[in-house]
């Protein structure tokens, strides 16, 4: 896109984008490490994830300050306005993802050895799927790519089916051996947190779609329609 006549304006928007992408990268690493800590039982790694969350919170405030500053001093319009409003929403969403990754890390410390291999495999697969979703959403943001954003929204269903499968597995374990309920509940909360992260990735993609096109994505039907329109434009 063409530069602004006032180059400091372009710099400020670029700065905002860069901070968001940095937050996104951090959140991605937190998800990865939190899942690793769960699977490997690595308490030290879990603790670093918990510590990193504070840094993410700081970056979120930085983003918000930057966005308020641009609104106050530059009165952005059209795509710039959408970018700034989007930045505020994205910063909040990524911060939430950080919180959820932190929760996963916390739960990992409480896990005992009784967790089954099947459930650990489930966490590993789901963790991978979720961090891939986040990466795709952030890539879509970096390129302001509406079509890639729609793809991310659609893929959230995959994560939901992972979650449902694991949920059923945990319930069957509990039914088999009610004594183990504490441990199973921990695993259940971990996968629930991952599933919530998936939802937030879809939210990021919705904001990216709005930034890129000015159109809000509301319903499933709309997503399908937009995706089919996008592919017929080829």
């Amino acid at each position: 896109m063409q530069q602004h006549i006032v180059s400091a304006f372009t710099d400020e928007l670029d700065q905002l984008s860069a901070t968001l992408l940095r937050m996104g990268g951090m959140a991605e690493a937190m998800i990865r490490d939190a899942c690793k800590a769960v699977v490997k039982g690595d308490t030290e790694l879990a603790k670093t994830v918990i510590r990193r969350d504070a840094e993410l919170d700081k970056l979120e405030s930085e983003c918000e300050r930057g966005a308020v500053r641009v609104l106050a001093l530059r009165q952005p319009m059209a795509s710039d306005l959408r970018m700034v409003i989007g930045a505020i929403k994205l910063a909040g969403t990524i911060e939430r993802i950080g919180d959820l990754a932190k929760n996963v890390a916390r739960r990992s410390i409480k896990l005992d050895d009784s967790a089954t291999k099947a459930s650990m495999r489930g966490v590993k697969t789901m963790g991978k799927a979720v961090s891939r979703q986040l990466k795709s959403a952030l890539d879509a943001y970096g390129r302001r790519d509406a079509r890639a954003a729609l793809e991310v929204i659609r893929q959230d269903d995959d994560i939901d089916s992972h979650y449902n499968a694991l949920l059923r597995l945990m319930l069957s374990y509990v039914a088999e051996d009610p004594e183990q309920i504490d441990s199973r509940a921990n695993v259940l909360f971990i996968v629930k947190n991952l599933e919530r992260i998936g939802d937030h990735c879809a939210n990021i993609a919705k904001v990216v779609h709005y930034i890129a096109t000015g159109k809000q994505v509301l319903s499933e039907a709309e997503i399908a329609l937009l995706a089919s329109n996008a592919s017929s434009e080829d």
């Binding site: 896109m1 063409q2 530069q3 602004h4 006549i5 006032v6 304006f9 952005p76 319009m77 059209a78 795509s79 710039d80 306005l81 959408r82 096109t213 000015g214 159109k215």
Partner: peptide
């Protein structure tokens, strides 16, 4: 016009990008 203009020139003008 001010949130989602259709034309690129409108977009460039209102966002202060006119070259």
């Amino acid at each position: 016009i001010f949130t989602n203009p259709t034309n690129q020139r409108t977009q460039d003008y209102i966002t202060g990008r006119f070259g």
